[in-house]
Design a protein around this nucleic acid. Structure first.
Lengths: 396, 396
DNA sequence: CCGTTTCGTTCACGCATTGAACTAACATGT
DNA sequence: ACATGTTAGTTCAATGCGTGAACGAAACGG
């Protein structure tokens, strides 16, 4: 019952323009002629629309191609330096700010280390704002050229009517208004989402998820989460907290989980739970190498982990029937690189034949650094969907 | 990445017309003036559009209301006898064909009993076609007045490029082309979907799910399934087999399930599994009263069942963050009527606070007979979305 | 230099929504 | 009975958009 909005003729333009931009963005340089076929629009419409986009400098020409015997085609492409995007990754140990051009090429980056338990929200906001200034200076870009700032944060981002509120237990954030704080310091449009979701977005757009309409991107680090994509759209749920795959129960009366419950998937396949099960001392700090040793040694704990992971993935397949499952996150990649085949076997044993056969299970391509890129993708999405109304802003 | 279609000005009309029809369908009789506010369209557009719909007889006037001091408003409503819908329920023991008017009032019904293991697809198709003729005669409706036939069937309905194929193990159906068989016998448009899904659709549109944008409708009978609704749209997955909640694993190395795997939720809370766990002899035929006795007696088996059910629901909440969960199916209703409060407690203990608080858990309102009505809803949906292109057909 | 082929643009037309001006239908006060 | 005010609904010129058809542009081959 999602209420469709009133539509007017201008929405037609906006939609078609977005479609053209998307096909050009993802479909490489194309001639106007090719675009008629790819978009279904008439040559006349393509002509006027590309004309507009060229004078706006959103598109640019990209050489010619001979076409046997006739007038050569002029290739068009999205102008990568028409505007820039900023992506921010707020993590437990650092705040990272990155500047991208429209093609997601990194132009500048700055990292701020956060001392443990120094996650005061105002400190974090100050770091982000300072980081924006730094990357703009480094990249020699003015704020007026930036379409917006995307921020990936830990925890649940509640998108209320007014402003995004962030709940992150481990940070001591309980309903923190980061959006408002940002707006107080910059006039750039700000988009905030959970870091796991922005990373999923990045994989979906630029990684192993390209082109998938139904996908689940699973993130296994010390925690466990998932991004669900149905019909090309991220499933957010009613308060934007869908995807807590790590806290689905997979064992009645199972291991206690840090969420307070028992038998959560995260307690078995999350790095923290996995290492604890393998008997790695709790005070170990270098988790990745510890995990590497556990995986190399093999043994029952690893087999058990693969069983839990495979069963958890099978549940996703039975429930959601995705065409693709991506495994990401630093721990997920380490496990998957060694044991993907065995995971596939376990999944096959625990899922229904028909949906299992419709799914391919692959590893993420982007690595754990993609949070900021995914956050920037939030801005890019807005631009592609509605380049007309958004457009460039005067910066303060 | 769902590719949006090329849009033209006429699509604007189609969309707005659908929106108007929907608000009038679900929002009771309204005056043109009220419709401007409800739809966001201008008075001018409302005027021309309602004019069209009135001459097409899709709308009709429904009295007047005084409006203090001025011209009285003329109320408009959807004309319930503009056209009719046929819904079919193909179940293990019967084929039921029902005729509805546009307001889903039942006009005629016919039941055919199926003898066990007489599920030959051609027999079923013949029954359906005969049933269509019977309800049309009983309801004194011509085929030309019927918008289409919706059919709810067991098993997985694979919506390929060409034609719907049905896989239903218990019926011995493996890729059966019911759609093609129907088209050979009638020229009415045919829509086929899984019966659990059509029932979910019925609850969502006309039952306890009205108005929910994010919902899960859970069906517990002898089997267990779910309909997931995200952003007002049913989540179907890549091959239309999403929603197999009953075969998600809730216990490692748990009870064997008839799907061949182990630890499936269905093996615990499905009527068959539940009765087996309670020690009810396998040859019992009257399952509902057996279940009634088990529930009345109480004891550990019941408690256990509520724990499994609550945990399964908690997994849905954590994963999908719905605003509403409906419990339906004959067994689900029996359990829920007695123990809804305890279910809510178990769910609370096993789900994250924030999404739990955003969810209300309620019982279905429509009862197990809603499969045919939900199937008819498939036709209604098509009509409301695209009344212009669909329109009435010449019948054979 | 000319015909052919392919690519791209221009323009009249049909269809959509809209604001503004207008008409319709009532109640009230005198 | 009649004027006035108020609310409901309609009509119309203006504007925006996509499209097909006619037209212009830029190459090739002879």
């Amino acid at each position: 019952m999602a209420r469709p909005e009133r539509k007017t003729v201008r929405d037609v333009r906006k939609g078609n323009r977005g479609m053209l931009l998307r096909t050009l963005y993802f479909g490489g340089p194309r001639s106007r002629h090719e675009l008629t076929g790819l978009t279904g629009l008439s040559a006349a419409t393509i002509s006027t629309m590309t004309g507009d986009l060229l004078t706006e400098k959103i598109l640019m020409e990209a050489g010619q191609v001979d076409s046997d015997g006739g007038r050569p085609r002029v290739l068009l492409r999205v102008n990568p330096v028409y505007a820039y995007l900023i992506g921010v990754d707020v993590a437990e140990t650092h705040v990272r700010v990155e500047l991208f051009d429209l093609e997601m090429t990194e132009k500048a980056r700055v990292d701020y280390t956060l001392r443990p338990s120094h996650h005061d929200i105002e400190l974090v906001a100050r770091r982000i704002l300072a980081g924006i200034d730094v990357v703009l200076a480094d990249g020699q870009v003015t704020a007026a050229q930036v379409l917006g700032v995307g921020i990936g944060v830990p925890g649940i981002v509640e998108r209320g009517a007014s402003d995004a509120l962030i709940h992150a237990k481990t940070f001591g954030w309980d309903g923190v208004p980061l959006g408002a704080l940002m707006r107080a310091g910059t006039s750039l449009p700000v988009f905030i989402d959970n870091g796991a979701k922005t990373m999923g977005q990045a994989e979906l757009w630029f990684g192993a998820g390209r082109g998938a309409d139904h996908a689940v991107i699973v993130l296994i680090g010390s925690g466990v989460g998932a991004t669900v994509v149905a019909d090309g759209q991220a499933v957010r749920g009613t308060s934007n907290s869908a995807g807590e795959w790590g806290h689905t129960k997979i064992e009645m009366n199972g291991r206690p989980c840090r969420c307070g419950s028992r038998g959560c998937l995260e307690a078995y396949i999350g790095a923290e739970g996995l290492l604890a099960r393998a008997g790695v001392p709790a005070q170990t700090t270098d988790w990745p190498s510890a995990l590497g040793r556990v995986l190399a040694d093999g043994g029952p704990v690893v087999d058990e982990t693969l069983t839990y992971l495979g069963t958890g993935l099978a549940n996703l397949i039975n429930m959601l029937n995705p065409e693709r499952i991506l495994i990401g996150g630093w721990a997920g990649l380490m496990i998957g690189e060694r044991h993907l085949d065995q995971i596939r076997v376990v999944v096959g044993e625990n899922s229904l034949t028909q949906p299992y056969n419709a799914t391919s299970i692959v590893l993420g391509e982007l690595g754990p650094d993609a949070v900021a890129m995914g956050a920037a993708t939030l801005v890019l999405e807005e631009f592609l969907d509605a380049s007309a109304p958004l457009r460039l802003h005067a910066a303060s």
